[in-house]
């Protein structure tokens, strides 16, 4: 054993990871891998997986699981200047098994949001943990870009609420409470393998419980390896502006 480090098995992207010895056409194989992030060209040990591709897979699954099962640290909202709040889920276990409770604000949060958030604002941005706590890493990038974009259209944002154990339907609970015009929820997505940090922006014009899901517009796959959060913030700003102008959202919003 030496002091040198063992190489990081996740350092090589799945597009470039290649283990097939004596491939019939290695350059062609490698070129073909560029069209997909599927784990191909991984070779085998007997009929089973190659050790390195298997460890890479395990590392990626670990990323996804940690994103889901880690709680947002106490004080996250206060430290980031957000108004703290929580859904009716008491803990992660309830959150995962009771999506209905994740769509409703608890009484304390309701009272706080009612007292502190801007009423009838043109745009209200909400931050939520959703199914990935790790996705909150995008907030410091997406939020200023979103604010600058909105400022360019003459729209100022009021205080931003944060909701712990948050499902997308929380928008329908919050919207009517503060008479919001357009609500934009930045929330962690259900992680794919190795995309633990992926975030979505859900947007709706005057959301409420009676609106169908198709009333929401979504921009998903926001993370370092997908749509960069800064760019997504700029794009979301232009969508929010259109929703305000057209007083529509979701599938009815002209594309």
């Amino acid at each position: 054993m030496s002091l040198e480090q063992v190489p990081d098995v996740t350092a090589v992207s799945t597009k470039d990871e290649f283990h097939v010895p004596n491939a019939h056409n290695e350059p062609g194989y490698r070129a073909m891998k560029q069209y997909t992030v599927a784990r191909i060209g991984v070779w085998r040990a007997g009929p089973r997986y190659n050790t390195w591709s298997q460890l890479h897979f395990r590392a990626d699954h670990a990323t996804a699981q940690d994103a889901v099962f880690t709680d947002v640290p106490d004080g996250y909202a206060e430290e980031n200047g957000f108004m703290p709040g929580q859904s009716q889920c008491a803990n992660k276990e309830v959150y995962l098994t009771r999506p209905d409770l994740g769509r409703k604000l608890d009484e304390e949060s309701k009272a706080r949001f009612d007292a502190t958030l801007t009423k009838s604002a043109p745009v209200t941005v909400v931050v939520g943990d959703g199914l990935s706590t790790s996705a909150l890493v995008n907030i410091p990038k997406i939020l200023p870009a979103l604010k600058l974009g909105l400022a360019g259209y003459g729209i100022e944002l009021g205080p931003i609420p944060f909701v712990k154990y948050c499902r997308v339907g929380i928008m329908d609970d919050l919207g009517p409470l503060i008479d919001a015009n357009v609500v934009c929820l930045l929330v962690g997505e259900r992680p794919g393998l190795a995309t633990g940090e992926s975030m979505s922006a859900y947007m709706a014009y005057r959301p409420n419980r009676e609106r169908p899901e198709s009333w929401r517009t979504v921009v998903s796959n926001i993370h370092a390896g997908g749509t960069p959060p800064v760019e997504a913030g700029a794009h979301v700003a232009s969508l929010l502006k259109r929703m305000l102008d057209e007083q529509l959202s979701g599938v009815e919003l002209s594309l």
């Binding site: 097939v20 491939a23 019939h24 056409n25 290695e26 062609g28 194989y29 073909m32 191909i40 060209g41 070779w43 085998r44």
Partner: peptide, 10 residues
């Protein structure tokens, strides 16, 4: 050849 997708190239 088992597990070598490039057998379908060329």
């Amino acid at each position: 050849r088992f597990g070598d997708a490039s057998i379908f190239l060329e």
